[in-house]
Design a protein around this nucleic acid. Structure first.
Lengths: 224, 224, 224, 224
DNA sequence: GATGAATGAGGATTCATTCAT
DNA sequence: CATGAATGAATCCTCATTCAT
């Protein structure tokens, strides 16, 4: 065994660097960060690993992001928070019944968030938010609030159009959120709480939850 | 210098430290640990904090528990794992219908676990299990397995007595677990995912979930 | 796994206590200490282990010995230092030639020290003395000095009786000590520096070293 | 908050700390480590002290060496293990009699190891090997084995050329090693076992030991 | 005398972050 | 812009020693 083998070549578990792209972009860092945070947890992911997976050096990460927490916020922004504008616009243009709109919203969430890597963010927030108050605050104001607003908006539309009868708007919105949270949990974390691997079918779960929720909302005799 | 000079004549001098002592120490430590783990997370809680809250020094904690992880396992044992014997005995003696038995089980869980500090353990496992494989393994074998067995046992009893028609035992058991996990999450972690504080009424949630589950289990025309 | 198994029953590796003798004596502690110190090293032996092997509690050890270092000194005293009086007396009474006296001394050392557990003390001093200055000082004054004096005394007797011609007394004494140190090292520590297990025959080594030393001391034509 | 706000515009503020940097760091650390390990013992030397003597911070040490034990191995490699290749080459080219070769080897060892700081390593192994099995194993395979092989090689050459008559190769090799170990011990550790400071003359000791060993090896009437 | 519960100083190692190049 | 060498705060755990009982 030679001396050189006894000297740390490189920080221990720096993942195999992908081919360095000349113009390493913040985007690649965000990508790598999302993967690693979801895979290993936020606290357990080392900044250097993120940099390595993005094919840049540790220093570069901090060139673009002030801190690991800011990186997390940016990941949230990139994958969820920053898309509300687009989603809101989409709903502005929606033309069908409010029941369809709600079903559409829930399915769209599944397609664009729930079924994608982005769903891991929700899991991360649930798991680790406690230790990172800044991130929690950011998530509250940039995701929870707009998300809740979006749902209320659909419900309000139903009420305004005489389709829904809503007594407690918050509670109704909450039912929708609960379904989504539940799907995320069963996808990411329930492993530890469930013995075998019988996964829930998400589409069917969404449909059945939507049906239950609408059952409680629809004006009797009104349009479906 | 002769041997006799090396043997001490009398205690040297009184230092300024001494404290009380008991044998209820482990209990006090487990108590403090549960509180702090739930409040701050397992990883984020320092061993010394646990000791301090129990009113002892750091060293004392390690006198009773080999490591922080062992302490966690002991917390799990004390609050959940160690109580399955008692619960199993209770169900041995249960006399009513299997539907009542299931409702009773779910409500009992809420009273003894869900509504108590112990529910925090489930949250901890969901949040941090990933980083502590030993603890996860312990929880799997000492909580998940026996818990699952207990539920299956109730379902099997229903089948054996002609009350339930169960096609997929695992899936049915899973529905029960899902309800409990959901309650725990909404109590401990959903804060981050829900805007206002409209808490779900756990009793009603349990009742409604039990109704839904039983709706899928009961033999038509059979005894309720 | 029950809670009680998760709580440390007893300090980890406290050896199996021998049957507690009603009158645990310092002697048993010294015995246990010598064994353990030689086996594991002084620093690496925990006070509690010594106590356990002696069948008493940790507290009792400190009742008899002010500190672990004092215990070490007492071990030295008991096994080596304290026996010089007896040895000196023995040599006062010695009647043969000085060459025989030297051979006798070297062989006696082997029988009473080198071949016994006590030889481990020399090894300990060589290995660990550096970190325990008090012990070193004690060993110097209670073993090295009297031992050296004893050897010089033999040499001086040879000179006084016209048997030896000694030019450098210290150097001559040193040759004797070197032989003994070498035997101890080869018995206790050389393992790490020697590949196979071809042990040196100590008796023959002593004889040959004695012959060499005497070859340098004896007056030509004088009595052997 | 938009994504662009999360990306840092400029470095925040200059903190009051910065130091020099090089790539000769490992060497400086190995140097400092050898000094301190020999001076205070391996276990008794704190990692931070090594770093401080090398003029760097604690963290820097662990940047280059995975652990204190790896640092020790690297010290061994740098000072002894890594030099066997060179030594073997030197002996490949040796041209004189095998007796000269043996004398040369012993003297060369003294010059390059025995008389230098590197000799402290042997002492460390003898003293502390017991508590660090990994280091012991490394030393065995990287120093003891090749060293023994080197000596046997010289002896075998003597036999092959009809110069030596060797009955027990291991025992002969062992005699050579014993001389070297003895010198190391008298230099580093015997202090504790010898009263005054009359140091042995190493050169003369080596010569006399070589003579004795060769006395037992040389074929009578053969070439010297 | 004995006990053993309690203490707390001491040290290796990790990793986010900085900054000279 | 990018690098990566350097930093040092933070934390678990051990074990000699004390002292109330």
């Amino acid at each position: 065994m030679s001396l050189s083998k006894l000297i740390r070549a490189r920080p221990d578990d720096a993942s195999p660097k992908r081919e360095r792209r000349k113009e390493a972009r913040p985007g690649e860092l965000l990508d790598a960060a999302l993967d690693l945070f979801v895979e290993k947890g936020f606290a357990a992911t080392r900044a250097e690993e993120v940099a390595a997976r993005a094919g840049v050096s540790k220093g570069t990460l901090f060139l673009y992001f002030q801190s690991k927490e800011e990186l997390f916020k940016a990941v949230i922004s990139e994958n969820i928070a920053g898309r509300f504008t687009e989603w809101n616009a989409e709903f502005d243009a929606f033309d069908g019944s409010s029941a369809d709109m709600l079903r559409y919203a829930m399915n769209m969430w599944w397609e664009r968030i729930g079924a994608t890597r982005a769903s891991g963010i929700t899991k991360l927030i649930i798991s680790e938010a406690h230790n990172f108050p800044d991130v929690t605050a950011y998530y509250q104001s940039e995701v929870i609030q707009p998300g809740h607003a979006l749902i209320r908006r659909i419900l309000q539309r139903g009420v305004d159009r005489g389709e829904f009868a809503v007594t407690d708007m918050d509670h109704a919105a909450y039912s929708v959120i609960a379904a989504m949270v539940f799907l995320v949990m069963s996808k990411h974390s329930m492993g530890a709480c469930v013995p075998a691997g019988q996964a829930l079918d998400p589409r069917r779960y969404i449909d059945s939850q939507a049906a239950i929720i609408l059952g409680g909302l629809l004006v009797r005799g009104g349009k479906k």
